[in-house]
């Protein structure tokens, strides 16, 4: 297997070129990242006062979508809280955090904005939003909000707010083939049909190479445009581009490693169960 990092401009974004892996392995990884990697998000909200123009529900929705980061010393999100379903009540308190949001507009005629940075942690001091300048609500003169929120560790399979990534996917690399080279005359139809203009002409034949392999959308417009029907665009079954964009709680390397760990644990559990069942059968 060969892996190359195409782009990694910041810790929350990565594009990988992977050679020598099959569809189902990559898809298992993708689904494990989406559904099993835990994150921290606001889940319960106690509203003491809300005279803003947003309804309580709308306020709750906006708050829950704010990604929260935390020091692993306070809440070990990717470690201990990974098995959130199996923890008992006393351990669950280690996977929750309380925050407070209190703001009143005392100005006579100005409108103020409440930002995500105004969320103040109560018990675990290192909990803070990943982005500080998300507007939560705007307050007119005399309006106020006073909320207490409880953030919980959860998983993407329960609610999309707990997903660690925003966009995550893979695409196979294209392979351009000419079935009958004698019929491929110098007609330029495929090169003109490409919307991205990435097909090149080498020895009067269309060629996909270099950067155009990564840019190709696999829309197959070139295949359709060919008057002799000799062009073929195949999706590779072992070469992929894997793109992952974190929401901001974890960096991408941690997300991928945790997902692989979780998959490993699940398969080991399965293997253990199977071994004990076989043992029972033999003894009986």
């Amino acid at each position: 297997m060969e892996i190359r990092i195409i782009a990694n401009p910041k810790p929350t974004y990565m594009e990988l070129y992977i050679d020598g892996i099959s569809y189902h392995i990559l898809n298992a990884l993708r689904r494990a990242i989406l559904t099993e990697v835990p994150t921290l998000a606001i889940h319960d909200i106690i509203i003491h006062m809300n005279t803003s123009v947003l309804y309580d529900e709308e306020l709750a929705l906006r708050l829950s979508l704010i990604p929260l980061t935390v020091d692993p010393k306070d809440i070990d999100v990717l470690g201990k809280c990974r098995n959130i379903e199996k923890l008992d009540l006393s351990e669950l308190t280690d996977c929750t955090a309380r925050l407070r949001l209190k703001k009143k507009n005392t100005d006579k005629d100005k409108i103020i904005t409440v930002y995500s940075k105004d969320l103040e942690p109560i018990d675990k001091k290192s909990v803070r939003p990943a982005y500080e300048n998300i507007p939560i609500v705007k307050l007119g003169p005399g309006q106020e909000i006073d909320l207490e929120v409880i953030a919980k560790v959860g998983k993407g399979k329960d609610h999309a707010k707990w997903m660690p990534v925003s966009t995550l996917g893979y695409k196979p690399l294209p392979i351009l083939k000419i079935k009958d080279t004698s019929k491929c005359v110098n007609c330029n139809a495929c090169i003109d049909a490409c919307p991205k203009k990435i097909l090149k002409k080498v020895d009067d034949k269309p060629v996909l190479d270099g950067l155009s392999i990564y840019l190709c959308d696999l829309d197959k417009l070139c295949v359709r445009a060919c008057p002799e029907k000799v062009l073929e665009l195949i999706e590779s079954d072992s070469q992929f581009i894997f793109r992952i964009e974190s929401v901001g709680q974890h960096n991408v390397i941690d997300i991928i490693n945790t997902a692989i760990d979780i998959l490993n644990e699940k398969y080991l559990d399965l293997s253990k169960e199977l071994q004990s069942k076989i043992k029972e059968l033999k003894e009986a």
Partner: peptide, 20 residues
């Protein structure tokens, strides 16, 4: 009403960029 915290389709956090 007020600018959304995340993109409706992909879920990327975009709220903090609105005022800029």
């Amino acid at each position: 009403m007020i600018f959304p915290v995340r993109c409706f389709t992909c879920g990327k956090v975009i709220g903090h960029l609105w005022e800029d």
